[in-house]
Design a protein around this nucleic acid. Structure first.
Lengths: 106, 106
DNA sequence: TCGTAAGTACGACGACCATCGTAGCAAAGG
DNA sequence: CCTTTGCTACGATGGTCGTCGTACTTACGA
């Protein structure tokens, strides 16, 4: 029962409100920005987040279920990548606009 | 105490997470889309929303406090407009991308 | 085999949120 | 002055959210 494949919404099922909600949290935004700056698939633990591991799990799940990230099992790790192509196909320009806005200085 | 001027955040104080959260609700998204399609200032009641008036008041306040809309008192009405220029100045391309995404067919 | 590392599951808690109904206020029109 | 119109204030309610700690699983490595 252990190795169950994770649920990822199909590209044409991505919901705008779910994506925006997923991106409206500072911790999750930081995850997405990190993935944007270095597209290398990386494990959850390699993100320097200021929350506990169980909270991180929660945030990664929200991002995955909204279709923002993809998670692949690899050993004890879960490699995370941005679903950039899927997001661009469904909502052209949205991800870039949000990432650009997130880069705006305070 | 009646005529108190409404609080609107300054352009350089707009918070991305607040904007995204404001836009992550279907009712509020509909308000913004309506304002986008017809930029004429309009009263809250002229939006055809599927919630009660008190709920509408709540949603307009969330949008205003996030800096997405501007509300001006006029008689017993409150004229609402999109803060398009301010949003474009602070987060270039974000509003257009979101509105474009909202127009994507189901 | 034993331990460690990576992540999950579950339950809890306080905070916030979307919704409503009722009551109320201020301005405009008669 | 009275009524209507447009919107707000307040309280309540049920639900979701972000956070944590503890316990657990699974895989890799010494």
């Amino acid at each position: 029962m252990g190795t169950m494949s994770l649920h990822h919404p199909a590209t044409d099922e991505l919901q705008l409100t779910a994506v925006l909600h997923a991106l409206s949290d500072p911790v999750r935004m930081q995850i997405v920005r990190t993935l944007d700056r270095d597209p290398t698939p990386r494990a959850c633990g390699s993100f320097q987040l200021e929350v506990t591991k169980s909270t991180s799990t929660h945030h990664f799940r929200v991002l995955r279920e909204a279709g923002v990230i993809r998670q692949q099992l690899l050993g004890t790790s879960k490699l995370t990548t941005l679903r950039r192509e899927d997001l661009d196909e469904r909502f052209p320009g949205l991800l870039d606009a949000v990432l650009g806005a997130a880069a705006v200085p305070l």
